[in-house]
Design a binder for these strands. Structure first.
Length: 632
DNA sequence: TTAGGGTTAG
């Protein structure tokens, strides 16, 4: 079919043009929508204001994320001709596309222009406040709603509640909910979301069970809640009820939500199920967003080879897909593969700033200094990417780890922005590795000034003192933290066994199989010692100073080391999984030096692959060595 | 005939 001439299009009645534009909005026909817009301009229709036509066009640009075009069109509509709908469409567009601040400004402008504010406009305002976490303006908006008599509007109240929930004030949201004369399924969903996130899945389930009506969003919130705390059995039973019991299909939003939750919590079982569902539903033509989420999920769950396979089979890939894969490979220390694949990426898509964060962190995790320098130096000239603080942080990390501490310091001084915690933290980490106590102290002072409550830095420095033989200084630093009432974030390790997450903290005795776990731990330590393991007591300063003799103290330090959360998780994994199968462990902090050397020997002695995800990267222990080559 | 709230991949 031939595209009609602009003149032919312009001769159509406005109501037909409006339907065409609306069709483009619904079908995501971006090119066609733009052509229609052009025809309207050249046909002279733009000079004859028609608010419905304008609004349809504005809605088209707003829906497709082109906030700039939407703003431009909005500004072209004469002020006397703008109605409340035009204002709210643009406000919503700003908020949804990462510019909630602009949304707020627009609301103020709207008030100044004396445009009538209705409940939908208020809902948009609350959405912007929710995204900004701005409870002050949100509360003022709540007051305004009550004052102008919008308190009986379900939409306005839902917006108020959502704002309070997103700002962490569940009590306020509940009060609004209880006072509502009429509630929609959305009112219930907002409360459910708040309760699951702020009070936990247990309380959330009670709300869910009491809902008079449930939509797919409610099911999604509940299932994501279960996945994110590792309740696999519960997430599965709800998934089955949703899909097979209620016959609700999973759409791409739901699928992405489940995959993202699985990636974060390391729940491969749910992740796999969702992947299989998506494949079964649409065959190999998986939605690009879902496919990307699948790649990300496998990579973050430690199955980087599966991630690579899924990636290779995808029919369509964009820069987000590539970034998911490359950063996954980087986390697994596969730096060379990242650099080998990058030219192929250049052929397919345009790399963005996140691509280079992945690339530079790959270089950093694999010790590829020269290559890292090359990409960093050519960021702007060759790829048109302005270096952001993340890139500087990667470079400081890369240089520091490789022992070029002076160069790293020079780079920090040259940065166009002040260094943040990540940049300085990286340099401090390198000081520990290379025993640069003086520099370390200086950086820590700066870091403490910036973030007095972050314990990680103190721990790093106290470990550094201990390594340098300055036990007194190390202990006084610890004491200082204690006096100020600041506690270290407890290390936690989890492992999925039998459809359930099993979580351990250091010295944990709460697991039902504690007896067996500690018996296994004794046996494991003995076997490790026979294989040459020597506990790394040098970096430990937890003992406190008392009058007991050194042998006692040493034993206490050793016992503390043996009970680290990842060792307990490994022991539980060893007794509860099939011989020879791989163990996957997820830790919230970074793995310590002693656990790292112990895990290498465990992988050899027990002939098991052990994959540990720590806060920064993956360690894959196999036959006595680690994929990070002791470089982390 | 136009608009909104909750779930949206790196």
């Amino acid at each position: 079919m031939r595209w009609p001439t602009n003149a032919a299009l312009a001769s159509l009645p406005n109501r037909h043009l409006r339907s065409l534009i609306r069709g483009c909005t619904r079908q995501c026909s971006i090119d066609m929508g733009k052509k229609l817009h052009a025809a309207i301009i050249t046909g002279g229709l733009a000079a004859m204001p028609d608010s419905f036509l304008h609004n349809a066009l504005l809605h088209f640009y707003a829906a497709h994320g082109s906030a700039c075009s939407a703003r431009k069109l909005f500004d072209e509509i004469p002020n006397w001709h703008k109605d409340a709908v035009d204002w709210t469409v643009l406000m919503g567009c700003f908020s949804r596309h990462g510019m909630p601040q602009s949304g707020l400004r627009l609301f103020i402008e709207m008030r100044r222009e004396n445009v009538r504010v209705d409940d939908v406009a208020m809902a948009c305002l609350f959405n912007a406040c929710a995204r900004l976490g701005n409870v002050e303006i949100g509360e003022q908006g709540h007051g305004f709603v009550m004052k102008v008599g919008l308190g009986s509007s379900v939409k306005a109240c839902n917006g108020v509640m959502d704002m309070y929930v997103k700002c962490g004030l569940l009590g306020m949201a509940r009060r609004v909910f209880e006072e509502m004369g009429e509630r929609s399924v959305v009112s219930w969903t907002v409360i459910l979301d708040g309760v699951v996130k702020l009070e936990g899945v247990g309380s959330g389930r009670m709300v869910f069970d009491n809902m008079p009506e449930r939509n797919e969003v409610a099911w999604t919130i509940m299932i994501v809640g279960y996945v994110s705390v590792g309740l696999v059995r519960e997430s599965f039973s709800l998934l089955e009820e949703m899909v097979f019991g209620c016959g609700l299909g999973l759409n791409y939003v739901t699928l992405c939500s489940f995959l993202s939750a699985s990636a974060q919590s390391g729940d491969t079982m749910t992740g796999r199920w969702v992947h299989a569902y998506a494949v079964k539903a649409v065959g190999n033509e998986i939605d690009i967003m879902v496919g990307t989420a699948v790649v990300d999920m496998y990579a973050k769950c430690g199955r980087v080879d599966t991630a690579l396979k899924v990636f290779e089979h995808m029919h369509q890939r964009n820069e987000v897909t590539w970034n998911a894969l490359l950063s996954g490979l980087a986390m697994h220390g596969k730096g060379k593969l990242v650099l080998n694949m990058f030219p192929q990426m250049l052929k397919e898509v345009k790399p963005d700033d996140l691509t280079f964060t992945a690339l530079l962190s790959a270089c950093s995790h694999s010790g590829l200094v020269e290559q890292g320098r090359h990409y960093f130096d050519n960021l702007e000239a060759s790829y048109g990417v302005t270096p952001k603080i993340e890139h500087y942080a990667c470079m400081v990390d890369l240089l520091g780890r490789a022992g070029h501490l002076e160069e790293a310091e020079v780079l920090i001084k040259k940065m166009p922005m002040p260094p943040n915690e990540v940049v300085l933290g990286s340099l401090l980490g390198s000081c520990r590795v290379h025993g640069k106590l003086k520099l370390g102290e200086r950086i820590l002072q700066e870091l403490v000034r910036m973030h007095p409550h972050n314990t990680d830095h103190h721990v790093l420095l106290s470990n550094m003192y201990a390594l340098g033989g300055k036990k007194d200084k190390a202990n006084s630093l610890r004491q200082d933290l204690k006096n100020r009432g600041i506690r270290k974030v407890p290390g936690m390790s989890s492992v999925y066994v039998g459809c359930q997450v099993h979580q351990f903290s250091a010295g944990d005795k709460s697991h039902p199989q504690t007896m067996e776990i500690y018996m296994k731990l004794d046996e494991m330590i003995q076997r490790l010692r026979l294989a040459g393991y020597v506990p790394n007591t040098g970096s430990q300063v937890f003992s406190g100073v008392d009058s007991r003799d050194d042998a006692d103290k040493l034993e206490e330090i050793e016992q503390a080391l043996f009970c680290h959360s990842e060792k307990l998780a490994v022991c539980f994994g060893l007794i509860s999984t099939r011989a020879g199968s791989t163990l996957y462990i997820f830790k919230n902090l970074r793995i310590c030096v002693d656990c790292h050397s112990a895990m290498k020997i465990v992988s050899h002695v027990y002939n098991r692959e052990i994959v540990i995800r720590d806060r920064n990267r993956f360690h894959c222990f196999k036959q006595g060595s680690c994929s990070c080559s002791d470089y982390w």
